[in-house]
Design a protein around this nucleic acid. Sequence first.
DNA 1: ATGAAAGCGCTAACAC
DNA 2: GTGTTAGCGCTTTCAT
Lengths: 342, 342
Amino acid sequence: MTRKARPTIKDVAAAAGVSIGTASRALNRRGRVSEATVDKVAAVARKLGYEPDPIAQSMRLKSTKAVGMLVSDISNPLFAGVIRAAETRLQQAGYALLVANTDNDKRREKYLIDFFRRRRVDALITAPCGLEDPEMTEALNNPDFPIIGYDRDIGESQSGLYVDHRAAAKEATRHLLNMGHRDIALLSSSEKLRPGRERIAGYKEALLEQGIEPQEPLIRAQKSSMDFVDSEALSLMSRRPAPTAFLCLGTRMLAGVLQGLRQNGWQIPDHVSVMSVGDSDLARLYSPSISAIAWDLKLVGDMLCELTLKQLDPETAGKPERIVIPTRMIQRESCGAPGQTI
Amino acid sequence: MTRKARPTIKDVAAAAGVSIGTASRALNRRGRVSEATVDKVAAVARKLGYEPDPIAQSMRLKSTKAVGMLVSDISNPLFAGVIRAAETRLQQAGYALLVANTDNDKRREKYLIDFFRRRRVDALITAPCGLEDPEMTEALNNPDFPIIGYDRDIGESQSGLYVDHRAAAKEATRHLLNMGHRDIALLSSSEKLRPGRERIAGYKEALLEQGIEPQEPLIRAQKSSMDFVDSEALSLMSRRPAPTAFLCLGTRMLAGVLQGLRQNGWQIPDHVSVMSVGDSDLARLYSPSISAIAWDLKLVGDMLCELTLKQLDPETAGKPERIVIPTRMIQRESCGAPGQTI
DNA sequence: ATGAAAGCGCTAACAC
DNA sequence: GTGTTAGCGCTTTCAT
């Protein structure tokens, strides 16, 4: 494991017969250097296998060429897909990606933001959970580095990327309405976070468009209980009139509903239609396959990087931007006209 | 975004009325320092909001407190779950996690190992894809930092963590044999990587135990074609006698087989039994739910960290270790006695 | 165009 | 026990 010491710029300078300052300028093509020295130094550097030490550079330049990313759970496929794209893009730009999980814990989140700050990341991409905390808002608004928000109502002063959850839920609801459904049950993740809020709003908008008043009992948004979905799904199924369609906002909701339906012997799409806002393997591969509203995770990751790199480029830094990612419906086999209610 | 300059150890020393060296010793409780100074310096540091600069520390100590992790695809749920656990554990130990995707591309892999080396990570956790490349082996055997292998036949000189894929496949095969199946089709990912090799070996061992000669035509290991699974699954179904059970080694295999079965109208478990080596949402939530051999991703991540941290601790560094992660069968609804062949 | 030297913030070796 | 100093590898004045 012990290797021969790697050559430093000093070695290069010595071997090239120039001063260390000149070597630096030659290597970086900065300031006044003759072409001849540039060539000579470059040749020597290559021969010696010299590589600049990023730590020493960070020390001097106060830039780590690292970007932090903070999500509640890396292993959530929706996040994982985004991180994957972001990592690849940042890599191309010479940046390293540091990731961390908040577990949706405000204390952890605060700690990790601080951790990244201490580590002097050049920028932070984050989907914060503790936004209602004034201390957090303060921290996010006066950071030491640009912050790029992901799907959260972060302040106007920061760049942000948003999936159009409202349009997504609206399109899904419309689709069900067009098929004749009127009692559309809604299972949603917490209203506290932007995606939940927007989706519920989209659902209501679609209903209202058709002059249908949203029925609150049909809307179930996650409080916090562990097996929320299962119990709520069951409760919804026992209502009379029973819902003829289930709109599931998120994969966990979909899984719970599918399980509940199966348990009760309700057939999809004969007895009941199912739509998912947010695509997943489960939706794609379930039998019958589940219609869903999807968006492009790679696009999300790439655009997050664009926003980030823009804030990192002195030319374009400082002007916060917003990007909204469009969604599209994928029709599969899980929707049909309302069948005979159980 | 611009903040007041953060205090350095120099400021702390000045404010505490001690020398900078003493301040350092006091803060780190290292060498000879009086309790009184320790307290005084600590108090001042807290008041000033002093935090040591990790970059400067890295510079001095030659340790970045960062660990790299290299996988083919972060968004693969199997990797994502492991990374998640690893990140959390490393965080506790004060290490940052740098992640990168190789895309199963040897060139990228080589580049990224170099990238991490330049970045001076303290250790690298990796599931390399280019092991047959002698240059790679060389790089992995003479690294600048400890390397911890994950599910790959990395050299003896490095620590490694292995999921017991052989036992997993063996148990799955035995289970099917015990139910009376004899024509068990096998769909596997590439034999080039350890998991594929071991699983196929386990399958054969179980067969041989019962005096059954493995039939090569029943064994399909991924060549490279895009829709390998679909075509192979279909081809297997058209064999006569038709296989009465499908053993799927990996989620992608399972998805393909499920789709093929469904397409042909074969009912699980009435017409055909299905088992998956490797658990997934799909297996868990499919209808009928699919029996699987599972292992604990969190355990894998945690153990990878233990191996890593051990190599990072001067006390225990240098002695490579192996850990084998056990697997367990989860019986669900997808297996039964061989039914009437189609 | 090049060299000399300062200094980023920190720790460790050495002197007192 | 504490202060002083060197130096990690680099970039960037400032002279020359």
